[in-house]
Amino acid sequence: MNKWLVALAACTAFAQDPRQIVEEVQKRAQSKSQQYEGTLEVVDAKSKVSTKRWEYSRLGAFGSSKSVLRFTAPAEVKGVALLVHNHPDRSSDQWMWRPAIERDQRIALQDRSTRFFGTDFSYEDLEERDVNQFDFKLLGEETIDGHPCWKLESRPREKKVSQYAYSYLWIRKDHYIYAQIDAFNKAGLARRIKYSDVQDVQNIWTARTIEVFDAAKKSRTTLKFEKLRYNVPMDESAFTLQALRRAS
């Protein structure tokens, strides 16, 4: 019994260290690779809806991953792709590929705060949040959509170039996954990202719907994951500019 109590106390102490909570989130989401087809729905302030589809592949995880996101529909945007190389010690490198003019374009760090192709995501939001690039503070516990969560504050470290001054993170206690992120810039709330439709996919609890709300524009983007798979064999050479060009 004592053993259990000690273990429970240790576990609670462990869980209440904000950094360790986020490390646990990262650990549980860890996979060698990820692949999905996404459906993106943008609803603007006037309720005008536009829908796009993309394919996403990621190799590696947190800090050193590489990913490719390629639009597949509608026809006018088919082939436009984004290549992201994440780094553990600095901001990611990002390139865009535009097949119609057959050229790549580097997305400068200064441009990461801009909207990603008219969605409510910014380029920065597409990066993975690596625990080593932020400082965390535990603010308390709250319930989000009926799920008990830890509420954390994260602030980017000096080397991390971010549009956000700080963010509040709600992490579900049951599966150690994000339930909600409120990202703030100097003016106040910039974006609210909500994670829902949580499912166990190959032993990794994953939110299959992500909704982003742009507080300034009052518009909303919903991303739904389909055909989600983890640990799919992938070739590193597929995550290069040359591969982007070849694939078009």
């Binding site: 603007d44 639009f71 006018e76 441009d111 801009t114 192709f117 524009k217």
Partner: peptide, 29 residues
């Protein structure tokens, strides 16, 4: 991707959607 940080395009309806679709705008030369 970055120019709007420097220049105000003052799109009609004060809405980016006045560019019918930003992705299409970029994708189509």
């Amino acid at each position: 991707t970055g120019d709007r940080s420097l220049r105000d395009y003052d799109l009609e309806n004060n809405n980016d959607d006045a560019i019918d679709d930003p992705l299409v705008f970029l994708a189509q030369p």
